[in-house]
Design a protein around this nucleic acid. Sequence first.
DNA 1: CAAGTTACCGAAAGCGCTTTCGGGAAGAGG
DNA 2: CCTCTTCCCGAAAGCGCTTTCGGTAACTTG
Lengths: 337, 337
Amino acid sequence: MGTIYDLAKKTGFSITTVSKALNNYKDVSDKTRAKILQAAAEMDYLPNAHAQSLSTKKSWAIGVMFSEANEVGMKHPFFNGIIESFRHATEEQGYDLIFASRNLRNRDMSYLEHFKHRAVDGIVVICSDRMDEQVQELMRSDIPIVVVDMDSANCSVVYSDNIEGARLAVNYLHELGHRKIAHIAGDETIDAGAARIKGYELAMQELNLPIQPGYLVNAGFFSVDEGKQAMERLLELDDQPTAVFVAGDQMAIGVIEAIHEHGLHVPNDISVIGYDDIEMIQYITPKLTTIRQDTDEIGEAAAELLLEQMTAKERLTERRIIPVRLVERASCAPVKQ
Amino acid sequence: MGTIYDLAKKTGFSITTVSKALNNYKDVSDKTRAKILQAAAEMDYLPNAHAQSLSTKKSWAIGVMFSEANEVGMKHPFFNGIIESFRHATEEQGYDLIFASRNLRNRDMSYLEHFKHRAVDGIVVICSDRMDEQVQELMRSDIPIVVVDMDSANCSVVYSDNIEGARLAVNYLHELGHRKIAHIAGDETIDAGAARIKGYELAMQELNLPIQPGYLVNAGFFSVDEGKQAMERLLELDDQPTAVFVAGDQMAIGVIEAIHEHGLHVPNDISVIGYDDIEMIQYITPKLTTIRQDTDEIGEAAAELLLEQMTAKERLTERRIIPVRLVERASCAPVKQ
DNA sequence: CAAGTTACCGAAAGCGCTTTCGGGAAGAGG
DNA sequence: CCTCTTCCCGAAAGCGCTTTCGGTAACTTG
């Protein structure tokens, strides 16, 4: 492949001139630039990224911290959509993504340490647990950073409009005639969970609907099983809800399972509305009505906020809230009289 | 954070000694090593990865080429499981994954070029299209490489035992009494598709079952829609099959949809068996019986084959075939008499 | 006690690139 | 014809680290 020295030797120019030609400096004539470029193509020369980074202090790499409660990593059906869209957006600007291990040659270090070691230009964290000490550490650092699906005053963040999403869900059920509306919630330590609870409470209040005892149940961390268990608690109630707003699609799948196992029908006996709009809910029975989060737009917004900081070379703290919308399918029906 | 020079100044030793202490050379006394390590901790010194790579020619990074026909990237429900497992396995050895963009500061280059530019230690390619010129180029290069879900004599490969998987599927249907067994296949340009076709033909032959005209239908690239369309062609036949072996779970979802839309029932009228065992098929109705590919093991095997080459510093060409197994759920039933 | 080991440390070169700064040649202006 | 710009180009330092090689001090050994 050769180095810049080889190119210099081949063309007869100094490495300085070669470097300048390659980097479009203005103080090299078109003629010599052409010669150098041609020679570079001939010996398919490629600059060494490490050498470049060393001397420019810019690595063209973005560190990704991806971590969620259920440890499924890239298999996470919602987060992986965000990552994918983020990747597209940053790729266009010439950045590579690096998924850092926490293990540097068997000395384990924090994500921050690792990212500093790798000298990334920016960091994106997709992590649901705001208490994670690793995340805190990243947010305290001075590396440009953007955090997805989590709120914070100390760095740029992007997340869906969860309050509005919850309101959409509750209002929709209300329009269908439901009054006994329960909420199967995500854990409050997760911002998205907390916000949807708040939205639920707000919406109920606006509609003058009381939240009956036992109608707000914490289902933990968005897994199918937890959703199922939560629904079972709801089904034990004397005064069962006629509709339930579930804080996540995966939980909603468990919820429907539980309802079916109890011999009841969705949506005829109980209406269910989810949150996220992950792919698989189009294929279950009944197809799940849900609040759609726009992963494409979330990823793009995250990229935008990060790129902004990286070019400005200073930390900004912008907050971007992405609109959600209701996707009507078949899991909700008018209340039975 | 400081450099090795700062550390040297702080401790009074030369940078040579500092470097040696950090890298566990034997020719530095325990006492001075301790001092240096302590000082390093105090100023939380971290070596700069670019400088290290530049001088050692080892980047501790693995390039990932991830590309499939449907352009869903990391959202791909099967491939993302492999990546995740691969990531775990390589992480343990201290490697980071780099998802390379094909765009180097707005000059577009090939994956190979990009990986050379980044000086990765190895490459993993997860790509279904064997004709992809980019993949060919990677395989021709001299960088350690492992290819997943594709066969080749020129580099290390790992894939599932597709022949055996197809055989398992067909035999299972046969045991249920089915004789009219169709195959909705993946495109033959994709190794996995071709192998499953071959397995299907083999198994049918072994059972002395003729493959009726129209029973082998190419459904293209494993999407739900393509599966659906293929099934519709099958349903137009005068002599309809009683069971169909579908080369991918996503296609099988479309297949079931098509059957239902025609007023028929799965599995009572037609049995369906899929391939892959992606998560969502546990939640559809009926739960899909399928051939399970072990993504964990595939990812681990890929990591193993790659690490092997990277430490040996030479290209090996080992072939690893991962066993599959039948997962019985509810989409197949004994044939009606 | 002289000679030979062994243990520990440092000077310096090198990895491949960028960038400042200065200098020579060619052109502009009087 | 002389001075002042403008246009090109290159020497050299520097980015932060590793590694070879040699040298000194301390320690054995007979």
